[in-house]
């Protein structure tokens, strides 16, 4: 076992982990932050996307010890300080960007990473960026619409489905 320390959602966090402990397991089982979902555990579904030093990564495909000293952001830290949903989260609610909700934490974290680098993405750019986030309710259309709306763009021309 080795000690790992990082900042998670702005707070210092540390714990004892094995070499093989994944970042997703550290977040979920040591810190109790179960909003980071483990869907496939084979690096394909993107439900476990978190930010490490500002970059979207799959927490199931990174060792916890690799995040030593890093700034980690998870879905639990996305809401506004008063507890209200942030712009992206609210847009997902407004535009029905989720059905069962399992993929949603990863979708929101990927969307946040995209909008940080590309504040006004086109529909095509959003779909391209989400290629590593799978939704098995086939909800992509409204997810894309929600991200368009969250970026302040007019979505009235995108048909509801």
């Amino acid at each position: 076992m080795a000690k790992v320390s990082m900042t998670v959602n702005g707070k210092a966090a540390s714990g004892d982990v094995e070499g093989r402990t994944l970042l997703s397991a550290f977040l979920r089982e040591e810190l109790g932050l179960t909003g980071t979902h483990v869907g496939c555990d084979t690096s394909q579904c993107g439900a476990c996307v978190v930010h490490v030093d500002g970059q979207a990564v799959k927490a199931c495909t990174m060792l916890a010890l690799e995040a030593e000293g890093s700034e980690v952001a998870t879905i639990e830290g996305q809401a506004n300080a008063d507890g209200s949903l942030n712009t992206i989260q609210q847009a997902f609610q407004d535009h029905h960007g989720l059905q069962c909700g399992f993929c949603t934490p990863g979708m929101v974290m990927s969307a946040a990473a995209l909008l940080k680098d590309n504040p006004k993405p086109s529909e095509g750019e959003i779909r391209d960026y989400l290629e590593g986030n799978l939704c098995r309710c086939t909800g992509y259309h409204n997810i894309v619409k929600a991200i368009m709306a969250a970026s302040g763009q007019d979505v009235s021309s995108i048909a509801a489905e």
Binding site: V17, G19, R20, T21, A25, F26, E29, L63
Partner: peptide, 12 residues
Amino acid sequence: FGKDDKMYEFEF
């Protein structure tokens, strides 16, 4: 960390 048992142990 039960979910990590899928990997053999290793040093890091």
